[in-house]
Design a protein around this nucleic acid. Structure first.
Length: 374
RNA sequence: GGAGGGGUGGGAGAGUGGCUAAAUCCAGCAGACUGUAAAUCUGCCCGCUUCGGCGUACGGUGGUUCGAAUCCACCCCCCUCCA
């Protein structure tokens, strides 16, 4: 049986391209992973997600725990079968909800106690329970439970939070060794806000514990692009070069390009789907909002040269109309287009790194989109 | 012809003497969204503005009053019922 493994194929400066192999299929890196929190990449059919070029998608421990329940998903044959996505799935541990649902939870050494945002019922998420749920779901790549604090945060608070996440990393690994099946992988998550000493301490301790991949958490949480890149600059050079590096929750296209240049291999973000549902589309010329009045009579598609039907076969005027009319197809087409744009961007990055021309690729990206990649 | 009801900002529709440039919803115009409580949220939405304000406004005209979308008179228009 295929085990979890990471193979580097080429590097260009700090940037790398390679393949993560898993029993459910390969993941080409740098990889963008669409987010399918509640067992669906919103407004997308799984086959269309695949057609955009996605090798792996995300699921979420907290949301699937509440509804429909991890045991139910397991009884239905696991998340892959349940949602008809046979390829790799990475699950977040619920750590992000520690931040996004901070008003609905209590944090203790033991874990996080959530009051369900759906019905108020109480749910205790410990590192052990989070891993148990991720194993019940059948996630191929799992995340340790962590605390994801927003930036800015004082050094002493960031330090205490990071050390809690480290203790949870150890507990998560023990639970994973007990519950997981062959071929599954557990990633540790580097925390420490925007403090170099804390990021270094977190990383060194995690590498002592030992994981098959390392996530960088707690970024894109209010610090801004330049500060995020500054944190990456003093973090990725110290990471295990033989393991995949996953920048959690990132990001905008320019964020991804800059992070790839700094040696990150994996990304996930709700932006292409969420912003797509809200009318924002990324194009070769940068981001546009299709609901703007200027597109009402624009007969051009988002990208006539694309091989994505959503980008190629529908005019901006039609997409504009669908949004104005509140039609479901509006969200579907723009989610599809954006996911395709992101996957094309990743494919472009991979081939540029393979060819040793990443700098040129970035220069072209900056010139075309006006994005500051720094 | 008679009786009754009503005319408020692009639309619907509150408001019956000062707290009203006028609730609320919709439409419109922009913006935001980063390990998804999001098909969501925020701002603008009479004109001008140096964003502090200023000027005009609730069918029309004329009154009452310190003050009127709100009270009075007449006129115009719409709806319902009766003939």
């Amino acid at each position: 049986m295929t085990q979890f493994a990471f193979t580097l194929n080429a590097t260009d400066g700090a940037a790398r391209t390679g393949v993560i192999t898993t029993p459910r299929g390969d993941i080409r890196t740098p990889a963008f992973m669409p987010v399918g929190t509640a067992g669906t990449v919103k407004a997308m059919f799984p086959e269309d997600v695949r057609a955009t070029g996605a090798d792996i998608i995300l699921g979420n421990t907290y949301h699937l725990m509440l509804r429909p329940g991890a045991e139910l998903v397991a009884a239905q044959g696991g998340l892959h079968k349940f949602m008809n996505w046979p390829r790799p799935i990475l699950t977040d541990s619920g750590g992000y909800q520690v931040m996004s649902l901070s008003s609905l939870r209590k944090l203790t050494e033991e874990g996080v106690s959530f009051a369900s945002h759906i019905d108020g019922s109480k749910h205790m998420l410990t590192p052990e329970r989070s891993i148990e749920i991720q194993c019940l779901l059948g996630a191929d790549i799992q995340m340790q439970l962590d605390e994801c604090p927003a930036i800015p945060i004082e050094h002493d608070k960031a330090s205490a939070s990071m050390r809690l996440s480290l203790r949870w990393a150890e507990r998560s690994k023990r639970a994973f060794e007990e519950k997981s099946k062959p071929g599954m992988a557990l990633f540790g998550i580097v925390q420490g806000a925007n403090y170099e000493d804390l990021r270094r301490e977190s990383l060194e301790r995690l590498m002592e514990i030992g994981f098959p991949g390392y996530s960088i958490g707690g970024l894109a949480v209010g610090e801004g692009r330049a500060e995020m890149f500054r944190v990456l600059d003093f973090t990725t050079p110290h990471m295990d070069g033989g393991r995949p590096r996953y920048l959690m929750g990132v990001g905008k296209p320019g964020d991804i390009v800059g992070a790839v240049a700094r040696g990150v291999d994996m990304f996930d973000c709700v932006l292409p789907t969420r912003a797509g549902r809200h009318g924002q589309a990324w194009t070769q010329e940068g981001a546009i909002n299709i609901t703007n009045a200027r597109f009402a009579d624009d007969p051009e598609p988002l990208d006539p040269s694309s091989d994505c039907p959503a980008s190629r076969d529908y005019s901006k005027a039609y997409l504009h109309h669908l949004f104005k009319a509140g039609e479901y197809l509006a969200a579907m087409l723009l989610s599809w287009h954006n996911l395709h744009y992101y996957q094309q961007l990743m494919a472009g990055l991979r081939s540029a790194i393979s060819a040793g021309r990443l700098a040129g690729f970035i220069a072209e990206f900056r010139a075309a989109t006006g994005e500051e990649v720094l």
